Each structure stands twice: as structure tokens, then as C-alpha cells.
Simulated scan of single mutants.
Amino acid sequence: METQAVERARRWLGERGIVETGHGWIDAEEPDRPRTAREIAHTWAGQAFTDGPLDVAEQVRLAFGLLDLLDDYWVTCEIRFADRGGEGPLPADVLWDGYRRRLEAERDAEAVTYSLWVDWFEDHDTAATAFAAVLGDDIDDVVKEGSADLLRRAGRVLTCSGPVPWAAKERTYETAARLPQLHTPLYMGLLAGYHDVYGQLEPEAALRLLARLRLPADTPYLAGLKTVLAAGHRNHGRSPHAWDEAVRASTG
């Protein structure tokens, strides 16, 4: 959590009569009805982008502060709406820096990774750009430096990268495979690339990559994934029976 961003967001809400108490959030207009963080997010997150005195970059930073404060996925929806809407796009450096910082933080990043997965990576119009911005463009630095925060970001992005087009992520996957610390999240990305409705992988290349990973022998579904890839299957949805047969064979 970025303290400065959180305090700015808390102050911004307070100026609008929204304050946090031990029993939830209170709106000065209805002080007897506590609100949840989700309710506050749905009511106020979008308004961060209509605050006239702030320039666009400041609005983006305010929205990320609200995300830190409220920890609700809806805030990321409003960020994406602003980027893809008529007044967008948002400044790319500020937008993706906001994602990267939160992917590197020690605190839970579920709202951020879910946002990447279902909003940015499953959309073919944004998947390659978003993946490059949060990991692909600096994967060499991540591997070279290997710091805890960079590895944390890389692991989180790889885990939810299943829907990213193979051409956009193959080099990043190959580079990430050089670090054993990233092998498990890389495996999760490959597994999701097979199972996600929008999953993207190339069977032969994915199988070669999978062979490089140092994974425990009891890694869930490892044998099944190897089997379907060796058979040339690209996605669970295209060959719905292949996976069940592969799992049965590997556990029988």
C-alpha cells in the first residue's frame, strides 16, 4: 500500500463527506447507514476522473489511491473505463506505473491481477500492450536484477497471463524460464493458457518450455498438460474430451 496515495484518496473522500469509521464507511448525507468499501468504490471511483481541478495524470494517481484504500476490483474497472472511453486514453506511463507498483507490493494484489486477467488480457485489443507494459518490456531487467519486488510482479503477471496471445508473451516466457523462482507461476500461466476460454498457446513451443521447468513431481495436472500438448491440442474448449482423457490416463 502506498501511504501517500492512500492518504490523498482518504482526504479526497473526506472532502466529499465520506469518512471511514470502525463500523464501515459513513456518508455525511446519511450518517446512520454505514457503507461498505465496495459501495464507496461503486459510487465514487468513477468521479475521480471528473474532478476538474486535477489534471489527467493526477486523476489516475487518485484512482490508484482509492484502489489502495478500498481494495475493491471496481476501482480498476473505472480506471479501464476512463482509458477506453471517449476522453481516453489515459497517460500510459502513469497508468502502467500504477499497475506495476501494486504488482510489486507485498500486500495482496488480487484486485489488480484479476483486472489484468479479465479486463486487459482477455481483450485482444489491449492484451499485448498491457502485458508488455507490466512485464514484457522489462523482463530482461527482472531476470538480471532478480529483486524480491520484481520477482513478485513477474510471478503475479505470469500466473494470470493465460489469455495473452502467444506471440506477445513467448519471448517473455522463454526469458522467465531462466529463473527457477518463476517456474511455478510460469507453469500456472501455461495451464491457464490451455484452460481459459481465451487461452493462447502453441502446443509444440509450450511443451518445449514446459520441459525446461523444474517443478515438483506432484505438481497438479502437470502430466495431463504434457499429454494434451504432445497431442497438439491448443485449448480445452476446442477439444473438451482430450483433457478428461489425459487426466484419467495420468491418474489411472
Rank of each mutant, 00 (worst) to 15 (best):
G86V: 15
W25L: 02
Q47N: 05
Q59Y: 03
V60Q: 06
D97A: 15
P34C: 01
E39I: 00
A82L: 02
L116S: 04
T50A: 12
D51Q: 09
T113L: 02
W44Y: 09
Q47R: 13
A57P: 02
A127Q: 03
L90W: 06
P91F: 03
D55T: 03
G65R: 03
A105Q: 13
W74V: 11
V94D: 04
A92M: 10
T36W: 05
V75I: 03
A105R: 09
A41M: 02
V94E: 09
A132D: 15
D72L: 10
R35L: 15
L69S: 04
A57K: 09
V112N: 01
L67D: 06
D51E: 15
A127Y: 00
L90I: 10
A111V: 13
L67R: 07
Y114V: 10
G46K: 01
D55S: 01
A45W: 01
R80Q: 14
E87D: 15
G65N: 11
E87N: 14
L70I: 10
G85S: 08
R100D: 13
L116W: 00
D93K: 15
P91A: 09
F49L: 04
I40C: 00
D125G: 15
G52R: 14
F131Y: 04
A37L: 00
A111M: 11
D83W: 10
I79T: 06
R61A: 12
R35Y: 07
V56A: 10
W74R: 12
F121L: 01
